[in-house]
Amino acid sequence: MLELSGIYKTFNAGTVNEKLVLKDLNLVLNDRDFVTVIGGNGAGKSTMLNMIAGVHHPDQGSITLDGEDITRLPEHARAKYLGRVFQDPMMGTAANMEIEENLAMAYRRGQKRGLRWGISKEEKELYREKLRTLDLGLESRMTTKVGLLSGGQRQALTLLMATLRQPKLLLLDEHTAALDPKTAAKVLELSEQIITANSLTALMVTHNMKNAIQYGNRLIMMYDGKIIFDVSGEEKKKLHVSDLLEKFEKASGGEFANDRMILS
């Protein structure tokens, strides 16, 4: 359903900071794939997600979603197909607006916006119901400003917003990295629940190898702007963290996996 082919991306071309981030990246996602993405810092994981979302555009190569070439489509125009949750809990919501106002913005993703009232009564009931499924007590605080919520609550809300309108593809960019371990575990579980319940196709970048093995039906490892390992099904289930570390070391020519990956 998603196809990246021959993607190249260089940042700061022509300056001393020039960096070739993606080199001939190729990836094909199948319907209902839940893919976890791992790799060291600077491997190009986030850039890949931003490329799919349209934050950056590739220098070369093409991106196709359900047969439609979206390579040159601006970010806001392809948002109708995508649900996104960011690493920074502040990124996914508008802090000065109420919970229900944020949800109302998300509910209109891909719809035409006009001079109708920004939120209707029937919607509010729907939001209350959806918020109840998060089990965070947010359903009774719908007019609270989002800025007053904790990071975990904001990520859970962003997750709900990203899936309020069924997206063709859900992009999770290290969405639990900024949370404490307990909250991170809860948000992860919630992500899986939502993905399963709505049979979504999802790409989840993570720094945590255990999570990468535990969740999803397919795992890819990136190194130096390319995918160096792609495993799914039974084979993925049998993976251990040590296997991944070994792969990583081999790819990087003996360089150790960074501390963050080992510790997690």
Binding site: A53, H76, A79, K80, M91, M105, G110, R113
Partner: peptide, 12 residues
């Protein structure tokens, strides 16, 4: 408030 969020919701 948050431009990135607004674009992610499909608004120019």
């Amino acid at each position: 408030n948050n431009e990135a969020m607004v674009r992610a919701q499909g608004v120019n």
